[in-house]
Amino acid sequence: MSALLTVEDLRITFPTRQGPSEVVRGVSFTLGRERLGIVGESGSGKSQTGRALLGLTPPPGTATAKRLEFDGIDLRSASPKQWRALRGGRMSMVMQDPKFSLNPVMTIGRQIMEALAFHGRSSRAEKKARAMAMLEAVQIRDPERVFRAYPHELSGGMGQRAMIAMMLVTEPDLLIADEPTSALDVTVQIEVLRILDALVTDRGMGLIFISHDLRLVASFCDRVLVMYAGRVVEELKASELDRAQHPYTQGLMNCLPKIDNDTRPLPTMTRDASWAL
């Protein structure tokens, strides 16, 4: 499998009053057309890793890497113009909460069509047709209505489908899903995940699935990176999760409730200071 994305020694630094603070400290991985999960608790640097891949590290933060290559393109030296062609066109990101990540004063249809507007030429009618087809692909039953709706008129699950439609309409090669279901009801989560999974598999995209939910990631991805305090502490196949070596991963595994036996008191994790070194 040829690598779609190569990341070597990614570091993200934010200046603080106490001097620079490194929130991602040397993350390396490669991604083919597969589903890679990144798991970690909040503050572990998983979301910042995702954003850095799109060149969207929020200022004044800075991202550096020894290698950062997407399909042969060196992202570290990409011009703003190259970035704009890549973003939305070849790589894209589904964000956490559709309530905040959709523009409240623009209809869903316009927001989906806007993604097409800056990637290749097409007429308005073509754009609309593609947007409608995409809304159908995310299993929205009444695409015509949703196309004309404003974000606040949609439920969370619908909004997230619209978000997925907006981010996939340009048929990118790489999709970063940053906690795409964390803001949704549990019942809707599964539906949205199925839709996402089907689209990613059908179109042969690479997927980076960022989540704090180890069980979800394990059932959904091929490979899992476990992050702790800005570092990858363990990388394993999703199917071999129970063979985890690192005590942090083991701790996470132990947190999962088991239906058949009553675990009391609930296990707590004792964090070893050496994990963060």
Partner: peptide, 29 residues
Amino acid sequence: AQEYVIAARVKGVPEWRIIWVHALRNAAV
């Protein structure tokens, strides 16, 4: 500073359009 601005950047929308269309349209209210 809103999330939808980041979403627009993710879509590859040029910065001028993010400022004058996305953000200003909301600030106009």
